[in-house]
Amino acid sequence: MRRAVCPGSYDPITNGHLDIIGRASKLYDEVYVTVMINKSKKGLFTVDERIDLIRQVTSEFGNVRVESFHGLLVDYCKQRDIPAIVKGLRAVSDFDYELQMAQMNNGLTGVETLFVPTNPTYSFLSSSLVKEVAAWGGDVSHLLPDAVFDALSRRLREQ
């Protein structure tokens, strides 16, 4: 069985993330979408909320599992016998950072990283940018799955 992981913070998941996950789901038998936990960062959504949203918007793929993990991604991969990491690249600046991570991960455990170029429609998109624009009242509805946009709108009204 061919397995891959799409790691990220997904705070929140965007249409750009969803595009990469969907494309990976066509290439692999199982795709693990893993919410990586960084205790030094406070997210807008809790890890459990992110997992729930990701499960909702990836349910159509049928071969996607959603989990969280705290620690090294390569340890997560070793525990689940996952030989590949799939990462979306938006720009050359992403490549510089991700190449270093890929080389480190491969050196540690032999896990391969596959880089998938982002759909040009989403090449500027990041969760941080979406949250900032939404917090200032900008329309981000076209950048997020409907369920995520609704959750983001509710969360920002609560603050």
Rank of each mutant, 00 (worst) to 15 (best):
R2L: 04
R2W: 07
V5I: 06
S9Q: 08
S9G: 12
Y10H: 07
I13E: 00
T14R: 01
G16V: 05
D19I: 11
D19T: 13
I21Y: 09
K26P: 00
K26L: 13
K26F: 07
V33F: 07
V33H: 03
T34Q: 01
V35H: 03
V35T: 06
V35R: 03
N38H: 13
N38P: 03
S40K: 15
S40V: 14
K42D: 05
G43T: 11
L44P: 06
F45T: 08
R50W: 11
R50N: 07
I51Q: 05
I51S: 04
I51K: 14
D52H: 12
R55G: 05
R55Q: 12
V57C: 05
E60T: 08
N63E: 07
V66C: 03
E67M: 10
L72Y: 10
L73F: 12
V74S: 05
D75N: 14
C77P: 03
Q79Y: 12
Q79V: 01
I82R: 03
I85P: 02
L89M: 10
R90H: 06
V92K: 03
S93Q: 09
D94P: 07
D94N: 10
D96M: 08
D96I: 15
Y97W: 14
Q100C: 00
M101G: 01
M101A: 13
N105I: 12
N106I: 00
G110R: 10
E112A: 10
E112I: 13
E112T: 14
V116A: 05
T118I: 13
P120Y: 09
P120L: 13
P120R: 10
T121H: 05
T121C: 00
T121F: 07
Y122D: 02
F124H: 15
S127L: 06
L129V: 13
A134L: 05
W136F: 15
G138D: 12
D139K: 11
V140S: 06
L143P: 02
P145W: 13
V148W: 10
F149H: 15
A151L: 07
R155M: 07
R155T: 11
L156Y: 13
R157S: 14
